[in-house]
Write a protein that binds this DNA or RNA. Structure first.
Lengths: 144, 144
DNA sequence: TTTTTAAAAGACAAAAAGGTCTTTTAGTAA
DNA sequence: TTACTAAAAGACCTTTTTGTCTTTTAAAAA
């Protein structure tokens, strides 16, 4: 579905938010381990997300990643658009540059509704809504 | 949506079938031009599709590509699976290796129906059904 | 049977995606 | 104010995707 960067970003942010909800600020080592992603690569992705202002980090002892609670929730759509652009969300299924009601590709009528459903999904769901629903997801944590 | 190889394969085969319906067997130069894909790359992809038995080719003067009419129609699903595997059709939206009703990712319930709709689409539609619907697609041809 | 035509084969190359490693910077605490 | 901790920065590497180019093979026509 999405590319690896987007996947790790999604999972990483959901994990961070999930931990934040428990009053914790996880570090990169813990995050990568829990979301089963390569540590250095995940670090690079999180750096980018910090620069984009999607999440915050603090260095030094007791440091780690956390969300700014004063900010509005982060929709999956915003994240996806920043990470990999809109190809999945508004590209033509047949790969045509210009595909619309006037010049429809042969999949236009059939694929349109599916793409719309996907857009609705990623517009409505947020990192926060997923984090609230991911209690059963992260193994180690649940054992504490 | 799909990767470039799959896209060019899709468009190329639909173009071939569309021409076959008019009693013509297009060559690689024409195909690549009409579907707006790089010629040498398209050639390589069609070679593969010939080896897979999805389409036939003949060399020499009057040669080109054509479908075996005695074979059953080719579903988009068969094509996609051969070209790029099943990741899009059965992967988890959250990127988890094991995501099912027992261990659902936080997108499971929301993304499931969308993936199912996509599977239905590519199972039902075939190169032939698209070719029959693509009269308005290929510019040059329609001017003859 | 030679020439022409067109696909097949396969080596090669560029770009993008995916990923690692080392050094630097900035907080925290002794 | 030094020692420690953890993220930031960025150079570097590997694999996959996307593509090109040249040579070979096979069919048809002259």
């Amino acid at each position: 579905m999405f590319n690896k960067e987007t996947e790790y970003a999604l999972r990483g942010l959901v994990y961070i938010q999930h931990q934040n909800y428990q009053g914790l600020r996880p570090g990169i080592e813990e995050i990568a381990r829990e979301i089963e992603a390569p540590q250095a690569f995940t670090a690079k992705i999180l750096q980018r997300l910090v620069r984009l202002g999607f999440v915050n980090s603090t260095k030094g002892k007791g440091g780690g990643f956390h969300f700014d609670e004063s900010k509005p929730d982060l929709s999956l759509k915003q994240l996806i658009l920043s990470m990999e652009g809109g190809r999945i969300l508004d590209g033509c299924g047949f790969g045509m540059k210009h595909c619309d009601a006037e010049h429809p590709c042969p999949l236009h009528d059939q694929y349109g509704p599916i793409r719309e459903a996907l857009n609705r999904l990623v517009s409505e769901e947020t990192i926060q809504s997923l984090a609230r629903r991911s209690d059963s997801l992260f193994k180690v944590l649940n054992m504490r």
